[in-house]
Write a protein that binds this DNA or RNA. Structure first.
Length: 556
RNA sequence: GCGCCCGUAGCUCAGCUGGAUAGAGUACCUGGCUACGAACCAGGGGGUCAGGGGUUCGAAUCCCUUCGGGCGCGCCA
């Protein structure tokens, strides 16, 4: 049950409409997926919308439309229901075809060429190299990577990029913190910076620095630049290790420091000045952001000569535009939402023809972690915080990724660590993986009991599927056929949590079927049909899990 | 004070550009393993969709408003 069926049925109704009410536009014909199975496969509410114009009761119009429907080999039935809905039911044969398609396309099933290879950049995580990745970065990594995978599945060419704020005051605070710890370790007088980083990892980095080639030379504890370089390298490497363990890879890392080195920051400032969007006041350089609806103008260059953070941000986003990305999605914590308008305004003020809504943002709320019924307090200043690594170590990569991507981005997230780490029926990720493992197990049994059949080419992909007519089989077929629509919508909405909900429903349909019916029946024809159905379930579960970076184990 | 986001079952959450009797999971209750994996299934109770008003044939969904919560409002990032 695919997009073709949907558009076919829409076409049938449009033709019916042309006979019943030729003056009405075809756009009133829309199809929706009823929540309840007894309302059919598709439902059309057009008659209720037409009632006013046509001055006829909606049920009459619906009845007329049904009678005017052209014949179709895919359409099983069309009936008027409720206040004027037209409920359409699709013939089993049309639904059964999904299995054939799935087995043919295999890993490629669900992929669409709709995006036509358009280049899109997804920027996410972008943590400052001042400490390990925490739980919030984990949510962002899970979200960003899945959004990127979704866009890829729709035929876009995706670049995953990580932006390092490796210049500026925070990095200086990092270097000073490490230096202070290094001096302490050497028994030298030290003063810990006021805005320093207190985590234990700072002392560990100081120890490593002192043990390194650069750090063992005389006066190493004075060399702040060497300390900075060492600390940033260490922390980047650690972040990379954690992301790798999380199954997240980036195509590109972009360094803020390179924007200064390339002169792009200065060039951006010069361009804004040349565009007449700036003025000097109180020894600072201001951008007229109020011209673009901001509530006050913003400082670009402070009176001490340093740029505020949003200048390199604008320079950075200009490179995205110049690198040819007309579609850019930034995944960020909602605590940074004030930067959204400023970056956009900065790009506008350049007068380069960049659209006002550029770039796109997916903002996510914070994560609170519950352990033993209590909130795990996270405080970066105090240096006590739960890292992404802790989460992966405790709950495993699969559960962590599944959990973190399973909620809408803009809802507060309560991560129940006890639930995520429980290897029991309470854990939703195992529910889905279990369905996959069950199919694998059945297929293995089949190969053991019917080796000749299993060895013959096309035993499943060429199976006669006409036996798949039971209510649970029809429900499964419909679910499988809806995969493509789900992906399209999840991609359009940049909402990968929909994958999790789909997976749960698919697994539920399969478990229900599995418990009610036997797959390995003695008669070859229904056996092959049911095995083909099960194999299709396996393919779709595995493909969908791959999009959210979760494995599909054959045994558990 | 201003801006953005949120408020749905005891708890955690879905609910698509407005559609039918608001759905899952979990918890609680009842049943199902000598049948391909019980990490499973079948069934049951559980709701003022925060409150109020409006638009509409139809509102959890859109608009206004009140209340409650989060985040932001810097010559920090």
């Amino acid at each position: 049950m695919s997009a073709e069926i949907r558009s076919h049925l829409t076409e049938l109704l449009i033709r019916a409409l042309a006979r019943v009410a030729p003056e009405e536009p075809a756009t009133v014909i829309t199809l929706e997926r009823p929540k309840q199975a007894r309302h059919g496969d598709f439902s059309c509410p057009a008659a209720m919308q037409l009632a006013r114009n046509l001055k006829r009761p909606p049920r009459d119009i619906a009845q007329a439309l049904v009678q005017a429907l052209p014949g179709s080999e895919w359409l099983e039935s069309a009936e008027v229901a409720g206040g004027g809905f037209i409920n359409l039911r699709v013939r089993p044969a049309a639904k059964q075809h999904a299995v054939t398609t799935i087995l043919e396309k295999d890993h490629a099933f669900g992929r669409s060429a709709r995006g036509q290879g358009q280049a899109v950049m997804v920027e996410f995580v972008s943590a400052n190299p001042t400490g390990p990745l925490h739980v919030g970065h984990g949510r962002q990594a899970a979200l960003g990577d899945s959004i990127a995978a979704l866009l890829e599945s729709q035929g876009l060419r995706v670049t995953r990029e990580f932006y390092y704020n490796d210049a500026g005051a925070q990095i200086r605070a990092l270097a000073l913190s490490v230096q202070a710890r290094a001096r302490e370790a050497l028994g030298l007088p030290s003063q810990f910076p006021e805005d320093g980083y207190h985590g234990e990892y700072i002392a560990e980095i100081a120890q490593k620095y002192l043990a390194s080639d650069a750090g063992s030379s005389a006066g190493a504890a004075h060399d702040l630049e060497a300390i900075r370089r060492f600390a940033v390298t260490e922390l980047r490497a650690e972040q990379d290790r954690d992301l790798q363990a999380f199954g997240v890879r980036f195509d590109n890392h972009y360094l803020e420091s390179s924007l200064y080195a390339d002169g792009r920051v200065d060039a951006t400032v010069a361009a804004l000045v040349a565009a007449g969007k700036t003025y000097e006041r109180d020894g600072a350089l201001w951008l007229r952001t109020t011209e673009y609806g901001d509530d006050k103008d913003r400082v670009m260059r402070k009176s001490d000569g340093a740029y505020t953070y949003f200048v390199p941000d604008v320079a950075y986003h200009l490179t995205k535009w110049e690198r040819g990305y007309r579609k850019v999605i930034n995944v960020q914590g909602s605590d940074h939402h004030s930067t959204v308008t400023r970056v956009r305004i900065g790009l506008q003020a350049l007068g380069r023809g960049i659209p006002p809504g550029y770039p796109d943002y997916v903002l996510h709320k914070m994560v609170t972690v519950m352990r033993g019924g209590e909130e795990v307090k996270i405080s970066k200043r105090a240096g006590s915080y739960l890292t992404l690594r802790d989460l992966i170590d405790e709950a495993g990569r699969d559960a962590t990724r599944f959990f973190l991507v399973s909620r809408k981005a803009d809802t507060e997230f309560v991560f129940d660590l006890d639930l995520a780490r429980s290897q029991s029926d309470e854990n939703p990720v195992y529910y889905v993986q279990y369905a996959h493992a069950r199919v694998c197990s059945v297929l293995e049994q089949w190969r053991a009991r019917h080796p000749e059949e299993a060895a013959s080419a096309g035993a499943l992909s060429g199976a006669d599927l006409s036996a798949l007519t039971g209510a649970r089989e029809i429900a499964l077929l419909a679910r499988l056929g809806g995969y493509g629509e789900m992906l399209e919508e999840a991609s359009r909405e940049q909402a990968p949590h929909q994958i999790c909900f789909y997976l749960r429903e698919l697994a539920a349909d399969f478990h229900s079927y599995y418990n009610a019916e036997r797959i390995l029946v003695p008669e070859p024809a229904p056996r092959r049909a049911r095995l083909a159905l099960a194999a299709a379930v396996k393919v779709v579960i595995r493909n969908a899990l791959a999009l959210i970076g979760v494995g599909a184990p054959e045994k558990m």
